[in-house]
Amino acid sequence: MTQVNDLTPGRKAIVGVQYLFVAFGATVLVPLLVGLDPSTALFSAGIGTLIFHLVTKGKVPIFLGSSFAFIAPIKSATELYGLSGALFGILGVALVYILMSLLIRSFGIKFITRLFPPVVIGPIIMLIGLSLSSAAVGMAASNWVLAIIALSVAIAVTLYARGILKLIPIFCGIIAGYLADLIFFDVDLAPIAAAEWFSLPQLILPERLMWEPILFMIPVAIAPVIEHIGDVYVVNSVAHRNFVQDPGLHRTMLGDGLACLFASLIGAPPVTTYSEVTGAMSLTKVTDPVVLRIAAITGIVFSMVGKVSALLKSIDPAVLGGIMLLLFGTIAGAGINNLLHSKVNLGSSRNVVIISVTLTTGIGGAVLQMGNLTLAGIGLSAIVAVLLNLILPQPKEEA
């Protein structure tokens, strides 16, 4: 595939803004669902992407945005430690990324595939979607008309749209739901009119050092770490370069980890590599890392426009619920696809045990209490999956 990277500065700016809008809907949806200012997420995504490019020597065309894998854990941790404590716990996610970077640099990636094979990752990805299904239904139920409009448009774009439009079903669904709310229901526009044009993002700084939420978040990082590795390989194929070798997978992992570290210190959602932007690159054939940095800077600028934040906060929860009905089901489907694509033997009793126990502990709401430390949800299920994979004997014919 011929790359189109010899662009004028003006065209690079246009493509960069376009890439941001591909990631915009998903990036702002995460903070809206966990009770954060969307401007903070845009600011963190922009700064995090620039940190990533600095660490990777400006060679890897990747954009970092809010990760859906952390919605349920942040909600659970907020109930236990408060929102400030939950967000500070993201430090644990950063530590996992940094540790993985060191291990990959020392031993390569084979040990990761031993710890986290598809039979472990598949059900964990499924849980990310399934654990939030009740929240999606609850939000949609507040106004089924808006929810169905947003859901229908998102589905139509997913199935029938072409080009860049096909990559922004979330964005299109939210716009359609918001317009329907304006036309048929009552949207309070007063906060938007009252908002300042220039406004700094609302940062939630750590109140005190808390080890419990950090330990709570550490197991949750397993799925995003594997997702990161997969995304880097996809970017390799799109850009026709081997970023695993140069600048090295350990550098991309470290860049993502430091970006998460920054997010934890300002009270923003964790960030991860965005497959939607990679898809946009495959369509436009523009893989110049400079364009991704333009997208990051544009996100930072948007985060300082107060009326943008006020507009996003005025979106009816039912609109978001409608989008979530599709989105979280799609995530669960991605976990199933991971198992099938990796040719996991579902007739194996060993694999069935790992998948079954992982799903039931996660969906059933199992909680492990050890003093002040609480493990629950996706984090606990991730530990269960890893331990079962290491402990249960593997038949020779499946090895």
Rank of each mutant, 00 (worst) to 15 (best):
P213M: 08
G322H: 07
I174S: 10
L99Y: 06
A23Y: 04
P201Y: 05
A318T: 10
V308W: 13
A72K: 03
E196V: 02
F24D: 12
T40M: 07
R162Q: 08
R208H: 12
M324G: 07
A280K: 02
S356T: 13
E207R: 06
L265D: 01
I98V: 12
F70V: 11
V238D: 06
M139T: 04
A366K: 07
V286L: 08
I112E: 00
T361N: 11
P38V: 02
M253P: 00
A190I: 01
F184C: 13
L388M: 11
I71N: 04
N351W: 08
G138I: 11
P224W: 09
T360E: 08
R350Q: 05
Q3P: 09
A366M: 13
M304K: 08
I300N: 00
A154W: 00
A140V: 06
V238K: 03
S264G: 04
S106G: 07
L261I: 05
I297N: 04
V60W: 02
A147D: 10
Q245W: 05
A26I: 11
S106P: 06
K75S: 13
Q3I: 14
E196F: 09
L29M: 11
P213H: 07
A382V: 04
E227Y: 06
S84A: 13
L146W: 02
W211V: 12
L165T: 13
F68W: 07
G365M: 02
L42A: 14
M217A: 10
L36N: 05
E397W: 03
I226Q: 00
V291W: 13
F68Q: 10
S84W: 00
I294L: 14
G25D: 03
A69Q: 07
R350I: 02
